[in-house]
């Protein structure tokens, strides 16, 4: 095609002018030369027809409609603001619920994802299951006495339960300590004495202020086993003597 030479115009010239030909902007002698060439050159006619067909296909494509939230997303990512009322395409007469949704939706957009919803669901399920195992039932809430008197009573009841439980534990320690003392008194062991003193030091009578400041009791005891014999927790005799007095004081209070 390029090698063909015609009287008015060559094929390569037609190819160079193809854009103007399709735009219809050729004028004067150039237009006449092209028309003469086109009548005698089938290959150029085919080339022009193909290009024109492609142009027609493309120009017939409709404009794509952008997503409705595109402007909002752009503004949120640039100036971090919602579009003004005139900028947002909103149907007229929408209710307060739609407006509220429109305002809340961007706030919850980062967490309104399936991943967060799944995590939230799993957490809710786990908490509900744990409460069920612990004996808590939401149906019992309506039976609760939420008055100030009822709350105070519940508080003291709970306190009494805790104290009772704690004292029961202390009694266990006392009994165990007594049993161990009795055993030691029945079968004295010279070798075990220093170790016992090391493991369960008695309060120092020479320095009562120091022993009073430190909290004696099971927390500072060494519960490891020694000489194959279980070493039980002890409760200091001083504290044992103070228990009835403390209990009396509490009852008085």
């Amino acid at each position: 095609m390029a090698g063909e030479i015609h009287s008015e115009m060559q094929c390569n010239q037609v190819e160079a002018l193809l854009a103007e030909i399709l735009d219809g902007t050729l004028q004067g002698e150039t237009l006449k030369g092209f028309e003469t060439h086109q009548q005698s050159c089938a290959s150029c006619r085919a080339m022009i027809d193909e290009a024109r067909a492609g142009m027609n296909w493309l120009e017939a494509l409709d404009e794509a409609e952008p997503p409705r939230n595109l402007v909002h997303n752009i503004l949120a990512q640039t100036i971090g603001a919602l579009p003004s009322e005139h900028a947002v395409v909103k149907p007229r007469g929408e209710g307060w619920l739609e407006r509220l949704k429109g305002r809340l939706a961007p706030m919850f957009a980062p967490i309104a994802t399936p991943r967060f919803a799944m995590s939230f669901g799993m957490a809710f399920f786990s908490i509900t299951m744990l409460l069920g195992i612990a004996g808590f039932h939401f149906a019992d809430v309506r039976h609760w006495d939420l008055s100030s008197k009822g709350i105070r009573r519940s508080y003291y009841e709970a306190q009494v339960r805790v104290m009772r439980y704690y004292e029961n534990v202390r009694w266990v320690y006392e009994i165990e300590s007594r049993v161990r003392d009795l055993r030691r008194a029945g079968a004295p062991d010279q070798n075990a004495q220093p170790q016992q003193q090391q493991e369960a030091p008695a309060p120092n009578p020479k320095n009562p202020s120091k022993s009073d400041n430190r909290r004696p009791g099971p927390q500072r005891q060494n519960y490891s086993r020694g000489n194959g014999e279980p070493v039980l927790a002890t409760f200091p005799a001083v504290m044992l003597a103070a228990i009835p007095q403390a209990r009396q004081n509490r009852r008085t209070a």
Partner: peptide, 22 residues
């Protein structure tokens, strides 16, 4: 001026979206 930027976005978002889409 944030309002000016909003106007620019309103004017050109369709054009830019269509170029990107095609």
């Amino acid at each position: 001026d944030a309002a000016a930027w909003q106007e620019i976005v309103q004017q050109y978002h369709r054009r830019i979206y269509n170029i990107c889409y095609r």
